[in-house]
Design a protein around this nucleic acid. Structure first.
Length: 454
DNA sequence: TACATACAC
DNA sequence: AATGGTGTATGTA
């Protein structure tokens, strides 16, 4: 092994700056990851953002070390106890396996970028990103070849790809096209579950029976129909549950599909070598933690470490990890979920000017109140989120006696929360309201007030 | 209930 | 010069 490959190398500092940008993503196969990582590091190094990322990394490292200590402290008796717990739980989870439904996950290809190209065909074939110098929402496939991707700041993207074209976000446009795709989804599952503007889950079990078609045939037909209605391509995954369908839709992206049959053996074979990071819900931190504390990289290894997982994690986390190892996921009909919170936040250049901060807060309170009135909501828990100039995030909350929704009430309470933090230099303020479960009774009164005011 | 973290898009 | 906005879930105290 070359000496530079060893850990603790000081010659290549960029290797220790872990961003999310080098994570495998569709369209990024041929990318020179080393180069991308070096440029991201060079552009970030020394910034407040970078320093905060380093603090976060150190915190995670600490957490991993704590976990390693806990593992080391397990006695043989503990280990055999937790293995029994795990084996029992695996059987219980296995008993919930449902192979009777066929789920399809649709994912529009580079959605925002594709919509922008549709409305400006001269962008076709050129590297392009939707977003700004501070943040990119979506990059088209030409840009991805340079390592440019969503969630990357634009100024770094431009360094990676100097000819990159920037297009500002235009949600109205994306919502319009999203609605067109949803009309198509409706034909295959009237109760389809929209996951975002560009993603949806469909239970196509009935569609398969009605049309006497396989899941793969339905997926082909649906993608063709989406293309005809919108001029946009999408990818699809078909599998026995939502978790697996989602993984599958990523496999032949863009403009492709992958079918995982409703067969236990096929599922287990599919899941066995699958990197855990491919699973929705397992992000950068969990991947890191499971790898460094347990040596887990693939879903199969979740089962091999089942005893340790049950020993070290809460019931719900352990259940999730074991389910992943078994290739289980939800197959039930999507329940109608009411939203639990509503928020507004804005980033600005960091300042400790109190008048400015209060003005920002007033603007947010006003925007939040407008949104709440639009939705007919009122709440009694108000949360103020602050991001300091050094990127530290704090939240401060109060739960009130009565439900509120007016900008005056929001501002009155939010100001108190802000005041307690002064003096402070901030780059972001957010105001959020939640917890209106018992509040539906008040809807009529709100409507009345709303009508009275206008 | 309050707060911090992790995650998704 | 410069690293988003909105919402959910969960662990812990």
């Amino acid at each position: 092994m070359a000496k530079s490959e060893s850990s603790g190398d000081t010659g290549r500092p960029w290797q220790s700056y872990h961003t999310v940008y080098t994570n495998a993503k569709a369209g990024m196969e041929g990318v020179d990851k080393e180069k991308v990582q070096r440029i991201v590091y060079e552009m970030s190094k020394g910034s407040k953002y970078f320093e905060n990322e380093e603090r976060k990394e150190a915190y995670i490292k600490q957490k991993i070390e704590n976990m390693q200590d806990q593992i080391a402290k397990l006695t043989d008796a503990d280990i055999s106890h937790y293995q029994k717990v795990a084996d029992k739980r695996i059987l219980e989870l296995e008993a919930t396996r449902d192979l009777t439904r066929i789920w399809l996950h649709v994912d529009m290809d580079a959605f925002y970028a594709a919509v922008e190209t549709l409305s400006n065909p001269s962008l076709n074939g050129k590297p392009m990103a939707v977003g700004s110098m501070s943040m990119i929402s979506t990059a088209n496939y030409e840009a991805r070849r340079f390592g440019v991707r969503a969630a990357m700041p634009g100024f770094i993207a431009r360094k990676l790809c100097p000819e990159l074209i920037f297009v500002p976000v235009d949600f109205k446009k994306y919502t319009h096209y999203s609605d067109l795709t949803r009309k198509v989804f409706q034909n295959y599952d009237p109760n389809f579950m929209a996951a975002s503007l560009d993603e949806a889950y469909l239970d196509i079990t009935n569609a398969c029976y009605e049309r006497d078609a396989t899941g793969g045939e339905i997926a082909e037909e649906l993608r063709k129909s989406v293309y005809e209605e919108t001029g946009l391509t999408c990818s699809a995954g078909v599998g026995p549950n939502r978790l697996l369908a989602k993984v599958c839709s990523d496999i032949n992206k863009p403009n492709g599909q992958f079918v995982l049959p409703n067969d236990r053996m096929a599922v287990m074979a599919f899941i066995s070598s699958l990197p855990i990071r491919k699973i929705g819900g397992i992000g950068k931190v969990t991947e890191h933690l499971l790898r460094d504390a347990f040596g887990i990289a693939t879903c199969e290894e979740m089962l091999q470490n089942s005893g340790f997982l049950c020993a070290l994690f809460s019931r719900s986390s352990a259940d999730f990890f074991l389910s992943v190892g078994l290739g289980l996921g939800r197959t039930d009909a999507p329940e109608v979920k009411l939203r639990k919170s509503i928020s507004n936040e804005r980033t600005f250049s960091a300042t400790d000017d109190e008048a400015f901060l209060y003005q920002k807060l007033a603007d947010l309170a006003e925007m939040l109140s407008v949104d709440m009135k639009k939705e007919g909501l009122c709440g009694r828990t108000l949360t103020l989120k602050l991001k300091t100039a050094s990127f530290e995030v704090r939240t401060r909350a109060v739960t009130l006696q009565k439900y509120i929704f007016s900008s005056e009430d929001i501002l009155k309470h939010a100001s108190k929360l802000l005041k307690a933090e002064l003096p402070i230099s901030l780059r972001l303020i957010a105001a959020s309201m939640g917890y209106w479960s018992v509040c539906s009774l008040l809807t009529d009164q709100i409507t009345e007030l709303w009508n009275f005011k206008f």
